[in-house]
Nucleic acid binder design. Sequence first.
DNA 1: ACCTGAACACCGTTCAAGT
DNA 2: ACCTGAACACCGTTCAAGT
Lengths: 203, 203
Amino acid sequence: MTVALRVMREEGLERVTMRRLAAELDTGPASLYVYVENMAELHGALLDALLSELELPAGGDRQAWREELIRLLSAYTVLLLGYPSLARSVLALRPSGPAYLRLIDAVLGLLRAGGVPARQAAWGVDLLLQYATATAAEHGTRDEAIEAAGEVYHQVTAIREADPGEYPNIDHARDELFSGTGDQRHRWAFTALVGGIAGTATP
Amino acid sequence: MTVALRVMREEGLERVTMRRLAAELDTGPASLYVYVENMAELHGALLDALLSELELPAGGDRQAWREELIRLLSAYTVLLLGYPSLARSVLALRPSGPAYLRLIDAVLGLLRAGGVPARQAAWGVDLLLQYATATAAEHGTRDEAIEAAGEVYHQVTAIREADPGEYPNIDHARDELFSGTGDQRHRWAFTALVGGIAGTATP
DNA sequence: ACCTGAACACCGTTCAAGT
DNA sequence: ACCTGAACACCGTTCAAGT
């Protein structure tokens, strides 16, 4: 596990292969299946190891729950942004490690401190953590992202040059589609998410 | 392209490999690189081919923009739910095909019909499409999902049995964490998202 | 009971060499 | 100019056979 974490930190999740880990431990790849069921489980374990570094709010100031919540979600996002492939993998996972449970518990606690009804809070956690994870999967910055930059460029160009006749609404919003800094957009997205969760009644 | 689409429909994105496609076309894998830069570009093309089936709203009834928007986002999600691996791949992509631009344009149009300010709408499209894509990536139903079911089970068990002392907020929301049908939760999530976008001012 | 060598069944991408 | 055989450098997972 420590070996896997080190390889991921130094070379990215792509390099964390059964064969590489086995070589690092001076054995064959088959030996690892004694400790781990498969690749997905290994990724789950890596996520939990990473999440144990996450600083959870102390929970003293109940008035500042919104800011605390956004801070926590941002910290989670930043942590995952360093490992976009892990974020992608986590999206296909249903994490169940203790550190992930602690994160769920902290988010629930902050929504509860804000007076958000239990069902809205429960359904909202999924929304918030999914958004944070997906954001990390999308805007990841690692070697792979260098080629991905080519695709960002394609999209930006396609939108910038979209024909006004065929795409009238893109035309109307053209200037705003690329406005703001990444940080402004993230903070706004989290605010909108929390506002929507707190303000939308469940059936 | 038609071959790739057929293989994906019949056997899933996992089987859409350069080598498999080459075999299907009676040639070597190297030949495909004449038509496509790499795997990511192929996935982008598959997404756009799939999205061309998406029925966009006619846009007559401006009063019903919320329902129309939720219907469109649901249709997009359902389309991708059949191809969870593609959804996962798309999350790492910045799609730029014509069908994807048409989808962006339609979402922008509905938000505009609802009187949502241009910047909120522009920033909101990302949020809405990211949520829809991430949802498909998460709840995908294909052979791979059968093993993923094991992880869902792990998480459900972990949450159900979470120690009340250590996870007091999970304990408090325990019954609500698994309440509602998938459809209820999705509709609520889309409603919360749209409400948050429409109701949160940008800087 | 625990571990593992070797094999099975694959990958994406590059490039020198052919037509 | 366009195409491709063959190679490079890898994968995850299984299972029979060893200790």
